[in-house]
Design a binder for these strands. Structure first.
Length: 784
DNA sequence: GAACCCATCATTTTT
DNA sequence: TGATGGGTTC
C-alpha cells in the first residue's frame, strides 16, 4: 500500500483472523487503522456496515472518523467508529427492555454516583470514616469492571466483614440506580455483556453485523471490555487489536495490561505485527525514552528506532523551587515564541493537576496565552449542572438525584425536611419521588410546602410540554426564564456571576448546535452526548496557545517542544507508587514517563525543583530516578545547584521584600516576568486560559474560584517564616490613616484597625479595588 | 434556611 | 496550601 512501510502494510493487509498490532509510540498507528479500514472496503469488498472500530476517547473516535472519511470514498459513514461506552449505549437503548429496564435511562456521572453512594451510606448507617464514599465507589467500580455482581463479589472476597458491607452498599446502590432509571458508566458495559449472555439471539445480531472489529489502545481495556470484545468477535474472529504495552498507564482505573500481553494465548492463531519505526521524535529523544523504558520488566520485546537525525540533546535542569522552575520554563517558551515558533507547538506536562497553578501564574505574568487541557470540565460547573438537572428531570422523572438537585435551586423555599418527607413517603408507598410530589396533599407534615411543591411539579410539566411542542432550544430558554436563573445571576453582578452567565450562553450554543446539526434532535440523545462527550475541547482550537496538561492527558498527542516539569522523587514517580507493595506501580510511573518523553518531536526539557511546597509544607526533593535512566550521552544537565541541596537561611534573607516576586538569582523581575506591566490578577484581566469557561481559575473569568482573593494568591512569606520557626502574626507598624501596600491589591489607606485576640483586623481602602477587610497576619501590609 | 467555622485530607481519569 | 464537608450558630 502506498506510503506505508513494510510492517504497516502487513498490518493493513492481514484482514482475516485475529491480529495483534504492537504499535510503538509515534509509529503511525492511526494511519494503519484508517488504511486498514480503507483496504477492507475497497480491496476486500467488505461492506462498511460490517466494520466496527472502537476507541477510548471521543477525540480519538472523531479523529478516526475524519480520516476514514477522507481516504474512503464510498460508504465510510456506515463504519461504526465509536467508544466502548457509546457503542454500549446504542445497543442498550434498543434492548434495555428485555433486561427489565427502561430505554430512556439516564447516565450518571461520577458526581451523581457519589450522591447516590452518600445516600446509601446514610441509609445503611455506615461510618463514613471507615467506609469513605470515594473508596466505596471505587470498590463498586472495580467489582463491575470484573463483572462481579454483589453476590459474586462477596463470594470472591471470602465473605469477610468488610466485603460484606461493601456488597451491601453495592446492592443498595444498584437498587437505587434502577429506581432512578439510571446507569453508571460501568453499567453501560456490564449490562451489555449481561444482555448478550442472557440473550444469545441478540448477541448474534451484533456478531453478524460486526464481522470486522478493530480495537485501538487495547492496553487500556479492562476485563469487561475484554469480555465484550471477545463475545462480539467470537463468531467471525476477525479481531484486530492495536496497542502498546509500554503505554499502559491506566491500571488505576481498571485497565488490564494482560489483555494485550496475553492476546496470543487467548488467540493462539493470532498474527503479530510490530510497528517499531518511530516517525515522530529525533533520535536523541527516542533513545532517551528507550533508555528509560528498558528498566521495566515484563514487556513485549520491541525496540523503537528512527532514521531521523540526532537533534538536540535532552536538557535537564534543577531549580531552587517550583517558582523558579516555572519562571524558567516560561522564559524558554517566550524565547521560542520570540523566534517565531508557535505556542501551539509547545506543551508543559506534569504529573499532578495542582502543578498547573504556578505555571499558569507565571504564564499570565509573562502574558503568554495558554490552554488547560483536561482538569475540571465545563459540565462540572454548578450552573451547567443545575440547568442540566432540569433537562434531565424532564427527560426522566424517575431521576431522583436530578430532582433533588433542582428542587430548591434556585431557592423556592423547599427545604430538606420537606424533601425527606416526600422521599420517605415515596419509599413507603413504593412509588417514585415525582409521583409522591403529585400526591403532596396526602403526605403528612408537608402541608406547609405543598403549594411550593405543586409549583415545582407544574413547572416540570410545563417544561415537558414546551419541549414536546417547541424542541430543545425552547426548552433551554424556558428553563432559564421560568427559573429566573439568569436574572438572579445578573442581579449578583459579580465577576463570578458574569462568568456563569457566559457558561450558560455556551451551553445554549451547544444545544442550538446540536439541534441544528442533528437529523432527529431529541433530549435523550442530547443528554447522552453530554454525558459521554465530557470533552469540552470541541471548537476553538485555532488559537495559538501553549498547552498545559497532565502526562496522562498527553497520551496520543505530540508537540515539537515539550517541557516535563516536577521531575522529582515522590512527585514523579509518585509517592504512592513508591509506597505501594505492588512492584508494577513504579513500572506504571515509568511507562508514564515514557509516554511523556515520546510526546516530544524536536526538543525536550526536563526540570525539577530542589524544594517544593507539598500539602502545605516545604519539602526537599531528590531528582527523579527517571533522569538517571536516560543514557548519559543523550542528556545535558544544567542547574542552579545540585539537587537536594538548599541553604535554609536563603529564605530568611528574602524576608521583608515580599513585594518582589519570590525568585532568586536575577530571574523574575529582571527578565521581564515581573509583576509590573503584566496583565494583573484582579478583576477584568484578559481571559488567558480557556476563557470559554475559565478553566484555570486564573484568567479572571473563573467560575471555579469564588472569592476574589482565592486565585493567584501571592507567595506570602508566612510559610517562609514558619520555616525559620518564626511566629506569624505579631505586631503591626501602621495605624489608621497610613498608606500601605498590599502584594495583590496595591496601594491603599488604612481605615480601621480592630484587635481581635492575637491578631488585628484591618480595613483598607485600596485605590484599585476599594475597601477590603483583612487580618494583619495574613495581609502582610507594608507601610509606605 | 443559610452563613460561618473548624477539621480533615489530599495521584493519575475517560466514559 | 487549598478545597471541601460537617457541624454549629444565628
Amino acid at each position: 500500500m502506498e506510503g506505508l512501510n513494510r510492517f504497516q502494510d502487513e498490518a493493513c493487509s492481514y484482514t482475516e483472523g485475529p491480529l495483534l498490532i504492537l504499535a510503538g509510540a509515534g509509529s503511525g498507528k492511526t494511519r494503519v487503522l484508517t488504511h486498514r479500514i480503507a483496504h477492507l472496503i475497497e480491496d476486500k469488498s467488505v461492506n462498511p456496515y460490517n466494520i466496527l472500530a472502537i476507541t477510548f476517547t471521543n477525540k480519538a473516535a472523531n479523529e478516526m472518523r475524519d480520516r476514514v472519511d477522507k481516504i474512503v470514498g464510498y460508504g465510510a459513514e456506515s463504519v461504526w467508529v465509536s467508544t466502548f461506552h457509546s457503542m454500549c449505549v446504542r445497543i442498550l437503548r434498543r434492548h434495555m427492555e428485555v433486561l427489565g429496564g427502561n430505554n430512556n435511562f439516564t447516565i450518571y456521572d461520577t458526581d451523581e454516583q457519589k450522591t447516590v453512594v452518600r445516600e446509601v451510606l446514610k441509609l445503611l448507617n455506615l461510618d463514613p470514616k471507615q467506609y469513605p464514599e470515594r473508596g466505596m465507589l471505587s470498590a463498586i467500580s472495580k467489582a463491575k469492571e470484573e463483572y462481579l455482581t454483589p453476590d459474586k463479589y462477596e463470594q470472591e472476597q471470602g465473605y469477610n466483614f468488610r466485603s460484606q458491607k461493601i456488597a451491601e452498599v453495592y446492592r443498595e446502590y444498584q437498587k437505587r440506580l434502577k429506581q432512578n432509571n439510571a446507569l453508571d458508566f460501568d453499567d453501560l458495559i456490564f449490562k451489555t455483556i449481561e444482555l448478550f449472555e442472557h440473550h444469545p439471539e441478540i448477541l448474534d445480531i451484533y456478531q453478524e453485523r460486526f464481522k470486522y472489529i478493530m480495537v485501538d489502545e487495547y492496553q487500556d481495556t479492562n476485563h469487561t471490555q475484554f469480555m465484550l470484545v471477545k463475545m462480539l468477535a467470537a463468531k467471525y474472529r476477525n479481531l484486530c487489536v492495536v496497542g502498546d504495552d509500554d503505554q499502559s498507564i491506566y491500571k488505576f482505573r481498571g485497565a488490564n495490561i494482560y489483555n494485550i500481553l496475553n492476546f496470543e494465548e487467548e488467540y493462539p492463531d493470532a498474527k503479530v505485527v510490530k510497528l517499531e519505526q518511530n516517525y515522530r521524535s529525533t533520535a536523541n529523544i527516542l533513545n532517551a525514552a528507550n533508555g528509560v523504558i528498558a528498566n521495566n520488566e515484563g514487556r513485549k520485546d520491541k525496540r523503537l528506532w528512527t532514521d531521523k537525525e540526532d537533534g538536540e540533546k535532552v536538557v535537564y535542569e534543577c531549580f531552587d523551587n517550583e517558582y523558579s522552575e516555572a519562571e524558567n520554563v516560561v522564559r524558554r517558551i517566550s524565547q521560542l515564541n520570540g523566534q517565531g515558533k508557535n505556542l501551539s507547538d509547545m506543551a508543559v506536562l506534569y504529573r499532578t493537576n495542582n502543578q498547573s497553578r504556578i505555571i499558569e501564574e507565571k504564564l499570565i505574568m509573562a502574558g503568554v496565552p495558554y490552554k488547560l487541557v483536561g482538569g475540571t470540565g465545563f459540565y462540572d460547573r454548578k450552573e451547567i449542572r443545575d440547568v442540566l438537572g432540569y433537562l434531565k428531570t424532564v427527560h426522566n422523572r424517575d431521576d431522583e438525584i436530578s430532582i433533588r438537585r433542582i428542587i430548591n435551586t434556585p431557592r423556592r423555599g423547599i427545604g430538606d425536611t420537606t424533601v425527606n418527607r416526600i422521599v420517605e413517603y415515596a419509599y413507603q408507598n413504593n412509588i417514585d419521588m415525582f409521583s409522591a410530589m403529585d400526591m403532596i396533599d396526602e403526605i403528612p407534615g408537608a402541608q406547609r410546602a405543598a403549594g411550593k411543591i405543586k409549583e415545582f411539579t407544574e413547572l416540570i410539566y410545563t417544561l415537558s410540554d414546551i419541549y414536546n411542542r417547541d424542541g430543545l432550544t425552547a426548552l433551554y430558554e424556558a428553563v432559564i426564564e421560568k427559573t429566573d436563573y439568569a436574572n438572579i445571576l445578573k442581579a449578583e453582578g459579580t465577576d463570578e456571576a458574569k462568568s456563569r452567565l457566559e457558561n450558560l450562553e455556551e451551553l445554549k450554543n451547544k444545544i442550538v448546535n446540536y439541534e441544528e446539526g442533528s437529523e432527529y434532535p431529541n433530549l435523550t440523545e442530547l443528554l447522552e452526548e453530554i454525558s459521554l462527550v465530557a470533552d469540552a475541547d470541541t471548537g476553538i482550537e485555532q488559537d495559538d496557545r501553549v498547552s498545559l496538561m497532565t502526562l496522562h492527558s498527553a497520551k496520543g498527542l505530540e508537540f515539537p517542544y515539550v517541557f516535563m516539569v516536577g521531575m522529582e522523587e515522590r512527585l514523579f514517580p509518585s509517592g504512592m507508587s513508591l509506597d505501594s507493595d505492588d512492584p508494577d506501580a513504579l513500572e506504571e510511573e515509568r511507562r508514564l514517563c515514557y509516554v511523556g518523553i515520546t510526546r516530544a518531536m524536536k526538543e525536550l526539557r526536563l526540570s525539577s525543583a530542589s524544594t517544593r511546597m507539598v500539602n502545605g509544607s516545604r519539602n526537599y526533593c531528590k531528582e527523579s530516578r527517571f533522569i538517571g535512566e536516560i543514557p548519559k550521552n543523550l542528556i545535558v544537565r544544567k542547574g542552579e545547584r545540585a539537587p537536594g541541596y538548599m541553604q535554609k537561611n536563603e529564605f530568611g534573607g528574602r524576608r521583608g521584600s515580599y513585594d518582589d516576586d519570590y525568585s532568586f538569582g536575577g530571574f523574575g523581575g529582571s527578565s521581564g516576568f515581573g509583576r509590573s506591566g503584566s496583565q494583573g490578577y484582579g478583576s477584568g484581566s484578559q481571559g488567558y486560559g480557556d476563557s470559554l469557561y475559565g478553566s484555570g481559575g486564573f484568567g479572571g473569568s473563573s467560575a471555579k474560584k469564588s472569592t476574589s482573593s482565592a486565585s493567584a494568591k501571592p507567595y506570602s512569606s508566612v510559610s517562609l517564616d514558619s520555616l525559620k520557626g518564626m511566629p506569624s502574626g505579631g505586631d503591626i507598624d501602621y495605624k489608621v490613616g497610613d498608606t500601605v501596600k498590599h502584594i495583590k491589591f496595591g496601594k491603599g489607606t488604612v481605615k480601621e484597625i480592630v484587635k481581635t485576640g492575637s491578631d488585628y483586623e484591618v480595613v483598607v481602602d485600596f485605590d484599585r479595588v476599594g475597601e477590603k477587610k483583612m487580618f494583619a497576619s495574613l495581609a502582610r501590609l507594608k507601610k509606605l
